[in-house]
Computed example of a mutant assay.
Amino acid sequence: MGIPLGDEDVRELGAPIVNMSIIALNFAAFIVGLTAPWVIVPGSRSYSDVIAALGMIPAYVVAGERLYTVFTSMFLHGSWAHILGNMLYLYIFGDNIESILGRARYIILYIGSGLGAVVFHIASIAFMPSEALINAALSSANPWMIPAVGASGAISGVLGAYALLIPFSRVRMLTFWGWFPLVLSVPASIFIGFWFVYQLVMGLATSVSGVSAGIAFWAHVGGFLTGVALAPLLVDKRRLGLALRILLMKTYY
């Protein structure tokens, strides 16, 4: 695994207005939440109050309460590292998918993948072995009551669509050989494939052990699979054909 630095874009098909707007909205929600939380949730005194009010708490959602949080939670983040990492992935991979799907269908993919991530996250708690839940209870972290926040579920769907539609697009990534930094160029299928396998392995590990890593790995898996399922239904074949030709030209020339 490594840190993505860029890819071969197909912005010739149009500026990624929706993708950049989503990024801007996420940053705006985070910064306003930190500096003036009462603007987002009246009466809030801290960003923690915003997360408590608008984060997706599984126990409430399965009871049919606070269902709006399945949407609001997609635009909240727990830290600067959290939002910077998510927005980096969205910036690099989202523009091509928006260009291929078109703006309206890209929004459907993004929101749909985020909802799929919520379903998988809740299911991962519901099917967690009883002994794992006991371990979680001993650590004072009841997974049913922990607010889930972040755009990573929706972004995982973007990665799924990317791996399915343009798997041979090259991704530049930063990795390390010991202490030495290396910049490599690999097919998107390899970069995203390793990313997905890691999410799956970590999801299985946390489900069995009940020890939370503070990351909703099953939400990532669910968002990714939802993106893979939605992409063929939403793809604009004409735009995809144009994108493939652009990428092939960049690959061979």
Score class of each variant (00 low, 15 high):
253 Y>G: 12
76 L>C: 10
216 A>S: 14
65 E>T: 08
152 S>K: 06
224 F>L: 11
148 A>L: 03
22 I>Q: 02
24 A>W: 01
17 I>F: 15
131 E>S: 13
109 L>W: 03
184 L>R: 15
95 D>V: 07
225 L>C: 13
144 W>F: 13
49 D>W: 08
250 K>L: 12
65 E>Q: 14
128 M>L: 04
60 Y>V: 00
36 A>C: 02
2 G>P: 08
211 V>P: 00
122 I>M: 08
189 S>A: 14
200 L>D: 00
221 V>N: 13
118 V>S: 03
160 G>Q: 06
2 G>I: 11
157 G>H: 08
225 L>H: 06
143 P>A: 10
116 G>L: 11
196 F>E: 06
2 G>Q: 11
144 W>E: 10
143 P>G: 07
157 G>Y: 05
246 I>C: 08
95 D>A: 15
48 S>W: 00
225 L>S: 09
22 I>E: 03
80 W>H: 04
49 D>K: 07
42 P>H: 10
24 A>C: 10
233 L>P: 03
131 E>W: 14
63 A>N: 07
237 K>Q: 14
179 W>A: 15
152 S>D: 09
152 S>R: 05
215 I>C: 05
135 N>C: 01
59 A>M: 03
112 G>P: 11
23 I>V: 15
224 F>H: 12
146 I>T: 07
145 M>H: 11
63 A>L: 03
231 A>V: 12
124 S>R: 02
123 A>D: 06
171 V>P: 04
133 L>W: 07
41 V>R: 02
118 V>Q: 01
186 V>N: 05
33 G>K: 08
160 G>I: 07
88 L>S: 09
46 S>H: 07
8 E>A: 01
248 L>A: 12
235 V>N: 08
17 I>R: 15
200 L>W: 08
228 V>T: 06
18 V>S: 00
46 S>K: 06
225 L>W: 08
224 F>I: 11
216 A>D: 15
229 A>D: 05
21 S>D: 00
239 R>L: 11
172 R>F: 08
239 R>G: 00
165 L>I: 04
100 I>S: 13
88 L>C: 04
202 M>L: 14
95 D>M: 07
233 L>W: 11
216 A>E: 13
133 L>K: 14
203 G>P: 13
183 V>S: 04
193 G>H: 11
108 I>P: 00
11 R>Y: 00
38 W>P: 00
97 I>P: 04
9 D>M: 04
91 Y>E: 02
78 G>V: 01
180 F>R: 14
16 P>T: 02
87 M>S: 07
36 A>K: 09
229 A>L: 15
249 M>K: 11
166 I>L: 01
195 W>R: 10
98 E>G: 01
